[in-house]
Structures are given as structure tokens and as C-alpha cells.
Design a protein around this nucleic acid. Structure first.
Length: 117
DNA sequence: CCATTGACTTAAG
DNA sequence: CCTTAAGCCAATG
């Protein structure tokens, strides 16, 4: 009999969803940070693909995930091109020209936030 | 089955 | 920050 594996055994997409669900309201992160937290730092494209597939999921706040410079690269994939910005502004994040203002202060790093000392 | 694409990132210049 | 190059891998043609 073997030990039940933990989250390591889940699919990559599944793990991405878990992390994205943990993003606090009013915070954002980027694809690379998620990928890095999952141990696949260079598979950031897959995180994007996971978001694309996340549309069917009820509680995956894909609007809180942007690219590394705080640009709303996923905006065009929402129902309306402004949906993503609207959601972010609603959470207290200022967005201008598809770019998050003061991105660094809103940034949420799973590797730091979810680490256990 | 091979080629291209894509909600990306990092490194080097 | 910009450009170029390379890495990554599922999905699509």
C-alpha cells in the first residue's frame, strides 16, 4: 500500500486553478509567478491556456491574472473587451489602456503569500 | 503526423 | 522599456 500523493498528483491545469482561486480580492499576479510556484517556471504559456479553459469554472478569477508588466493581455478573451478591466476596477485596481496602474503594489506572489516558514 | 499558434517568460544586447 | 532568440507544451489545422 502506498501513500496517497498530495496535490503533486493533480493535473497542471487543476493546480493552476487552485492558485488562481487563492488570489485575494484587489490583488493580481502574472502567469510566470503561478508557473514558478508550481515548479514549471518556463511553462507560463500553459498557465494562459489554463485560463482559457477556466471559462467553464465558476470560481476562477482569471481577471486577476495578467502578464508580467501588468498588461491585461487576456482582456480580449472575455465576453467583452472591457469586462476584465471593469472587474479589476471594481476590486479597487486602477486600469488605464489595458494596463494596471501601480501594478507592483497590487502584485501578489503565490510563492511568498503561500509559503510556510 | 508535422506545422503553426498562443491570455508568456527569461536572458542578452 | 525595446528587440531578438529561445524555451515551453496543449490545442488546432
Amino acid at each position: 500500500m502506498q501513500i496517497k500523493l498530495s496535490e503533486e498528483n493533480k493535473d497542471f491545469f487543476q493546480r493552476v486553478y487552485e492558485v488562481v482561486r487563492l488570489i485575494p480580492k484587489g490583488r493580481v499576479t502574472n502567469y510566470g509567478a503561478i508557473a514558478k510556484y508550481l515548479g514549471t517556471a518556463r511553462s507560463s504559456r500553459m498557465v494562459g491556456w489554463a485560463m482559457n479553459a477556466a471559462h467553464s469554472l465558476p470560481d476562477v478569477p482569471a481577471h486577476r491574472v495578467v502578464n508580467r508588466i501588468g498588461l491585461l493581455s487576456g482582456a480580449g478573451h472575455f465576453s467583452t473587451p472591457t469586462q476584465m478591466q471593469e472587474l479589476l476596477e471594481k476590486e479597487g485596481i486602477e486600469v488605464k489602456e489595458n494596463q494596471i496602474i501601480n501594478f507592483k503594489e497590487h502584485f501578489w506572489d503565490p510563492q511568498v503569500a503561500l509559503r510556510i516558514d
